[in-house]
Computed example of a mutant assay.
Amino acid sequence: MAKIVNYISEAFEELKSNVTWPEWAEVQKYTIIVAVFSIVLALVTWGVDESCAKVIAGFFKLLKP
């Protein structure tokens, strides 16, 4: 158990002293970029899905006698 506690405390110490954390403004900027990209990607995926559904429905409509 002491090894686990030692590992965790060393990990936290390394995070505090050796990791370079970005500035808050930079974090906000990248968060907005990721959110916008996620929304755009979701809309593109939805559009492709709707288009494929219409093409498949039209194909099956042609096959019906």
Rank of each mutant, 00 (worst) to 15 (best):
M1P: 08
K3V: 05
K3W: 05
V5Q: 08
Y7N: 04
Y7G: 00
I8S: 03
S9N: 12
E10T: 08
E10G: 12
E10I: 05
E10K: 11
A11T: 15
F12S: 13
E13H: 12
L15S: 08
K16Y: 04
N18F: 05
N18Y: 05
V19T: 05
P22V: 00
W24T: 15
W24Y: 09
A25F: 06
E26Q: 15
E26T: 15
V27P: 03
V27Y: 05
V27E: 06
Q28T: 04
K29N: 03
K29A: 06
Y30R: 12
T31A: 12
I33M: 15
V34G: 00
V34W: 00
V36P: 00
F37G: 03
S38K: 15
S38D: 08
L41K: 01
A42Y: 03
L43E: 07
L43F: 11
L43I: 12
T45V: 08
W46Q: 07
V48Y: 02
S51Y: 13
A53Y: 08
K54L: 09
K54I: 07
I56E: 13
A57R: 10
G58Q: 13
G58H: 15
G58R: 11
F59M: 06
F59V: 02
F59C: 01
F60M: 01
K61V: 02
L62S: 14
L62M: 13
L63Y: 12
L63D: 11
K64E: 12
P65Q: 14
